[in-house]
Design a protein around this nucleic acid. Structure first.
Length: 256
DNA sequence: AATTGGTTCAACCGCAAACTG
DNA sequence: TCAGTTTGCGGTTGAACCAAT
């Protein structure tokens, strides 16, 4: 079987959406939901492909989308999550309620990369010492405290992120529930954590289907059940993500 | 007023993962 | 188990907009 014909070959419309098309899509989804994107345009009477409808809905029409400029805090969060996760826009978007992966990707390419470069340049100018000259520069020096963990007392990142594997109230990291996080992103009593680069999420590691704290060089222990949590499921990824955030292991950015 | 160059962002494309029968 | 189908993701494009000349 070959690839499905593109929109144009099917006689379907491409390009910017009109207000009328938006209204048709919105009212159809309100009435019927969107269980099948491929069938949706035909059923709704839209001359669009399902892919186009899904994109329009998820990136623009969804009621929970936050419009308007990004706040400084949101931008800082993107910068730090990007340093941690790389170009995983959907994962980053999941941490910014109301923002879409497309929007975040655009902001990154159009504004934040530039902002980072400017910061790096000004930091280098400011610095006559050696610390800032290293390729891997500590962003917190330039950008201030990490907004993602600015509270000094740990709270779960987001209730809906918590699967049954790590319900709130229990500390899966082995840290005490009242572990104190410092503004510099570290946890009292623990040294700087290793930078998490793309290899952390690599297929090689995923192929193991689990990772241990030895892989990461953490200074604390997880229970055997915890260390076997999968890295290939959303819940598993959420667990390990939250673990890193809670551990204060925000990486240095090495790519700028 | 016209032109040019840079910026922004909605939308498309292709691929891979996930799902289904 | 596997082929076909659907969905989601990240990279890229191009039209619209804006500022400088």
């Amino acid at each position: 079987m070959g690839r499905a014909p593109c929109c144009e070959k099917m006689g379907l419309k491409k390009g910017p959406w009109t207000h009328e098309e938006d209204q048709i899509l919105i009212s159809y989804i309100h009435q019927n939901g969107h269980s099948n994107w491929r069938a949706l345009p035909k059923q709704a009477g839209l001359l669009r492909c399902g892919k186009s409808c899904r994109l329009r809905w998820t990136n623009y029409l969804r009621p929970d989308i936050k419009r308007g400029n990004f706040t400084k805090e949101e931008e800082d969060t993107i910068i730090k999550l990007h340093g941690m996760l790389g170009n995983r826009w959907s994962t980053i978007a999941a941490r910014l309620p109301g923002r879409t992966d497309n929007e975040i990707k655009n902001v990154w390419h159009t504004r934040l990369k530039k902002r980072l470069k400017n910061h790096q340049r000004s930091c280098k100018l400011d610095s006559n010492g050696s610390s800032h000259e290293s390729k891997a520069m500590d962003l917190s020096t330039c950008l201030g405290p990490n907004p993602g963990i600015e509270s000094t007392k740990y709270e779960p990142v987001s209730p809906q992120d918590s699967s049954s594997e790590f319900s709130s109230g229990t500390d899966q990291t082995g840290l005490p529930n009242n572990a104190v996080f410092k503004d510099n992103g570290q946890v009292d009593g623990f040294e700087t954590f290793p930078q998490i680069d793309d290899s952390f999420w690599s297929e090689e590691l995923s192929a193991k289907n689990s990772i241990s704290t030895d892989d990461l060089g953490f200074g604390f222990q997880l229970s055997p059940a915890e260390t076997s949590i999968s890295t290939t499921t959303d819940d598993g990824m959420n667990f390990w993500y939250n673990l890193l955030v809670r551990a204060g292991g925000l990486p240095e950015l090495s790519e700028f």
